[in-house]
Amino acid sequence: MSSSLRQALLEGERAGSHYVLTTPRGLPLGTVGPHQGARTGSSLEFREHRDYQPGDDLRYVDWSVYARSDKLVVKLYHEEVTPHLDIVVDSSRSMALAGTTKAEAAVGLAAFFAVAAENAGMTQKLWWAGDGCAQPPACQGRAHTWDLPAFDFAASFAESFARRPPLFRPRGLRVLLSDLLWLGDPMHVLAPCADRATATIVLQILADADVRPPERGNLRLLDVESGQTLELLVDDAAARRYGAALERHESNWREACRRVGAIMTIVVAEEWLEERRLDELVAAEVLQVL
């Protein structure tokens, strides 16, 4: 692992220590534990009454109301949970595009979220999306001690999911760190991520070179993942179309995220490494400043 990535982990961990991870709709969910969950559960804290519906847990029928009114009403309680965070990092080659700091931003953000989750009393797990999603062996403990594999997967993030999706813990939070630059239906990745998740947060990490197309002229564009090339005359009009295509691509992802209830934000690697702030997620109440 290079020294720049090691430094990025350290800086990300330092930045994350000023934040606490939470969920947009209140409090996190997970296995039974000491925190109060956002959903109905079995703690002692009463939440509300509502009419019985088929499939409701019959233990929570309020028999005193039934005796008085002959109407089945259930009592709802807050549940108690220990929240959990799954962080999935795209390790495709495009994340380590030469001349950019996408890889540093990705590992820095992973460390950032791991620490913010720890501040919230959550457990965390890192998934490395390479040839299938797996936990890197040397990624236990504090983030700055992680020994991360290389960003060398020669296919897309979606392909990694298709080969072996992560074994997410039900009702946990999930954070996806990827540049999302592949052709395909976003739902192939978002649907399994959002399945039985409390909240799903998608961070699109782009380099400055991704946001602003390269210089003008006759270019032979080389796709670092597939090795394919495309020869183009790039002028202002082509650059504008590139911008429009990027905007359309992001819009597709935002729409897909909206459909599954995920939160998406875009991070420009170079800018993030300078400021290390995620104001959009703070505004969305995913992060709280300590």
Partner: peptide
């Protein structure tokens, strides 16, 4: 005529340039 090699994250966003008639013309 000459070409400059530029590595990019993905060709995805350049694909529709191939159909353009004025610029960004696929060679």
């Amino acid at each position: 005529n000459s070409f400059r090699l530029v590595p990019v994250s993905s060709l995805l966003l350049w694909l529709d340039q191939a159909e353009a008639r004025t610029s960004g013309l696929r060679v």
